[in-house]
Amino acid sequence: MNSKYLIPVVFFSLVAFAEQELDLSFLKGLEAKAKESTDINLGPEQIQLLMGFSGEGSKELLGLGKSIERVQVKTFEFDKDGMYSVAEMEGLRAKLKSGDFVPLISVKEKGGFTEIVMRKGPKGNRGFVIVSAEARELTVVNIVGDLDLASLGKLTGKFGIPNIQMNSGGTSKGKGSSKGGKEDQDEDEK
């Protein structure tokens, strides 16, 4: 390849790669205020490692892992309202409404919102982002890869993931088969 084309190609590839990871640095410091928090950031290298050591019994996980390139999850649970800046979350929301993102579900609630956006690539879906800002709970999920939401449904009831029905007319129902499922059921009962 001619070097005059190589530099822009490398540059845009790097930019595209960097864009896959959401900049959530504005959430730094919230861990200290939160009752519970989760921070997961798995890049291509770690997912490759996972695939290399996956047991035979986890074909679904292996299949899903093959199509996933990045998993970024941040959750915070607070004791009281107003522990984070909704304005900053709105900033992230606005960012997700531009570029390669296509809004799928957008719900405005009292004191917060929920947004699900699909990331569009040249060959179809390139993952999705979930931003859920509730009064006492904050969740950001960024999954990059050639997968859709239906692929996730195949994982329910396995690997400790609660048995949740994620169909068009279905309701969320925990069967209590796992710890997570029980928690979900309890949550539903409340």
């Binding site: 989760t38 979930i130 939401l149 996730l152 329910t156 949740i164 029905q165 969320s172």
Partner: peptide
């Protein structure tokens, strides 16, 4: 971590759907 991430994601999706 991957399982936990999928757990959180599916749970969140189910809650939104509900």
């Amino acid at each position: 971590q991957f399982t936990m991430a999928m757990n959180i994601t599916t749970r969140k999706m189910a809650r939104i759907q509900k």
